[in-house]
Amino acid sequence: MPDRTVQAEISGTVWKLLVAVGDAVAAEQELLILESMKMEIPALAPDAGVVQRLLVAEGEAVGEGQPLLVISAR
């Protein structure tokens, strides 16, 4: 399986990163939290894998569909 890019489903600001490069994550695990519409909205892992790259930093504004991070295949 190829690496998967996790995209922002909503626009907002990166409020908190919850994972670092090299972390193993489970499907549905919260990867980072976006602040949007005054709410804290987590981005979830689509599948289990290992975090390969972080593409955004805390405080950064992101748009709908923007790549957030890359997860490897297991």
Partner: peptide, 8 residues
């Protein structure tokens, strides 16, 4: 679905 813009 609050996961999508808080349900807005």
């Amino acid at each position: 679905d609050p996961f999508h813009y808080g349900g807005a």
